[in-house]
Write a protein that binds this DNA or RNA. Structure first.
Length: 564
RNA sequence: UGCCCGAUGGUGUAAUUGGCAACACGUCUGACUCUGAAUCAGAAGAGUCCAGGUUCGAACCCUGGUCGGGCAACCA
């Protein structure tokens, strides 16, 4: 099985690694990391990155670190650290004992900064942010040098130490790397290494009033951890020369980390920026970060996605450098593929219509046998009660059906899954509304599933639930959060929120499900036959189980019928 | 007007590193079916952004364009 696992095509990062390996770089050691900033919840784009980094470490028998990039105390919170830890763990990316924080390295970073100052490669600038920004020029205009650029190392060191000691207020001074104000790369125009921030840090408390900037902290953190491949997204491509410049300042031996950039994941009908997701949460467009409609890992988890389904997805999506928009259908396909193998089949009627079987004894209950999962012989069987009154799906009965409609209609026969063939003899409508209230059928006693006369074929098979045995349940159905494939595609003056789908959430409170579903726990997953995959929500109680629809089953009929 | 990336069916990713474009999703047929699911069989759909060049041969190399994305926080 394994050997005919068609020669897996390698992505461009693996190609690079393979080349380096054959050159003997870093002694053949492979070490990756995932470096989230704890300022928001992780989303499926992060999942791609986590799975990529962890996957590479596994593939090459290397190591994988989790490191929080917590260099900005004004935006970061413990709540986010906790959620990120939970999400990464849930995905199965194992950092073993290598959980780190950039803030763990503040002392080392500071020490190095002093060294760089003494090497004449960094200086303290007294100018305000606006002034520095002005002098930086524009992409097409070179920058000009700060009047403080040529301070002598001793003076810089003294000032830097006083910055650390807290002698200056926020914004009074910064430490800048002395690189090249005329570089065509804006990031090389004497970037800021440290800013003064009298702020409480979630880990270091009030120890520091001086915090390193991303570019300075990131590569050095990689270096300290022995990271060999620092994989990040495309927008950091222009930072790479600076990443390398900073490593140059401190590198001591042969080893050095290498930054490689790949294209971030984009999903159709979805927004992915932390800022927008935060906005959706804060302004109440969704019910929290783990709202099942959110593309967050916690949202997907609550929705019923499995870690495996996300792995399947990540593999199908691939890794490259070109901008992409993945069809959400691929995500949906990935869960179905996983859940099809694992989820027990059960029957649940979401929009019940009562069917009375007129020739079945009124007070009798019959126990039928039902297969739990035709895809998994080991899943076994369960008992199902049957009686003379059952509920079927309202959409499974029509008084005047179109051609090709295989379900129940006056005079037509249909099979009740795992039970009998029934025939519609009559129905009753509400005199006022015209709504169908009951359907009257007769059953064929010879047609019992598994019985001698069960070979008889009918066009349709319906799911059902015995009226007197069924239990009540709430079902939440989700549709895409945005109406437009590209949520950003709006008329002038509007933003992505104009594309919000008002019908993204449908709550059905009168559902009837088979009695075996009485004792379920949040997270349990099922296939409601003919309906889709569902997952028990955290709001579920023993009195009222709540199911989230993870994804509907593929449904050619609804496609066919809605086309006309 | 500067610099850095990228460009292959509707979507995404490949192509033994120069040998007549493959896989997946989606779409459409059909078979099977006690889930209109799954499964199985098949089909349509790109001639690789454009123009030159090198070569027996180019999606891969070279030149010049075009288009798309990124870069001017004391954010990451």
């Amino acid at each position: 099985m394994d050997d005919n696992k068609e020669k897996q095509s390698v992505n461009f990062i693996e190609t690079i690694i393979n080349e380096e390996l054959s050159e003997g770089k870093n002694d053949g050691r492979i070490h990756t990391r995932f470096p989230p900033e704890p300022n928001g919840y992780l989303h499926i784009g992060h999942a791609k990155s986590i799975l990529l980094n962890y996957g590479i470490s596994q593939e090459y028998k290397g190591k994988f670190n989790l490191r929080f990039d917590d260099t900005n105390p004004t935006k970061e919170e413990q709540e986010y650290v906790d959620s990120i830890l939970e999400d990464v763990k849930w995905l199965g990316a194992d950092w073993e004992d290598r959980l780190f924080f950039a803030s763990d390295y503040f002392d080392q970073l500071y020490e190095w900064a002093e060294k760089i100052i003494m090497n004449g490669k960094a200086y303290v600038d007294d100018q305000p942010a606006e002034k520095i920004s002005e002098q930086r020029g524009t992409p097409s205009k070179p920058g000009t040098e700060s009047p403080f650029r040529n301070r002598i190392p001793e003076e810089n060191l003294d000032l830097f130490r006083r910055m650390k000691a807290g002698e200056f207020p926020n914004g009074a001074k910064v430490l800048r790397a002395k690189v090249d104000m005329t570089s065509p790369n804006m990031h090389m125009r004497d970037p800021v290494m440290y800013r003064i921030l009298h702020a409480h840090h979630h880990r270091t408390g009030d120890k520091w009033c001086l915090y390193p900037m991303y570019d300075w902290a990131h590569g050095e953190s990689d270096y300290l951890e022995g990271i060999t491949h620092s994989i990040c997204t495309l927008e950091f491509e222009v930072h790479r020369p600076l990443y390398d410049w900073f490593v140059d300042q401190i590198q001591e031996a042969e080893y050095r980390p290498r930054q490689i950039e790949f294209a971030r994941l984009n999903l159709s009908y979805t927004v992915m920026s932390k800022r927008k997701l935060l906005e959706l949460v804060k302004e109440g467009y969704v019910n929290g970060w783990d709202d099942p409609r959110m593309p967050t890992i916690s949202g997907l988890r609550r929705r019923g996605y499995t870690p495996e389904s996300l792995k399947i997805f990540a593999e199908k999506v691939g890794v490259a450098k070109r901008n992409n928009v993945i069809d959400v259908a691929l995500l949906e396909h990935s869960v179905r593929e996983d859940l099809n193998k694992k989820a027990s089949r059960v029957m649940a009627v979401l929009d019940p219509l009562k069917v009375i079987i007129t020739n079945y004894p009124e007070n009798e209950t019959e126990i039928l046998r039902a297969e739990n999962n035709p895809e998994d012989p080991d899943a076994g069987y369960r008992d199902l009660p049957f009686s003379n009154e059952v509920y079927i799906e309202r959409s499974d009965f029509m008084t005047d059906p179109p051609k090709k409609y295989f379900r129940l209609a006056p005079g037509r026969e249909v099979r009740l899954k795992n039970a009998y063939i029934i025939k519609c003899e009559d129905y009753k409508t509400d005199e006022v509304t015209g709504e169908i209230v009951e359907v009257y059928c007769t059953y064929d006693p010879e047609s019992k599933s598994g019985g001698a006369g069960s070979q008889r074929k009918v066009k349709g098979t319906l799911h059902w639930v015995s009226a007197q045995h069924a239990i009540d349940a709430e079902v939440r159905q989700f549709d895409r959060l945005f109406k437009n494939e590209d949520p950003e595609n709006v008329e002038a003056g509007q933003d992505y929120k104009a594309n919000l789908n008002p019908d993204s959430l449908t709550i059905m409170k009168a559902c009837k499900v088979e009695p075996g579903l009485r004792d379920v726990n949040p997270g349990d997953k099922f296939q409601f036959q003919r309906m889709g995959y569902f997952c028990v929500d955290t709001d579920s109680t023993p009195e009222m189980p709540v199911f989230n629809r993870t994804v509907p089953l593929r449904d050619p009929w609804s496609k066919m019928s809605s086309k006309k």
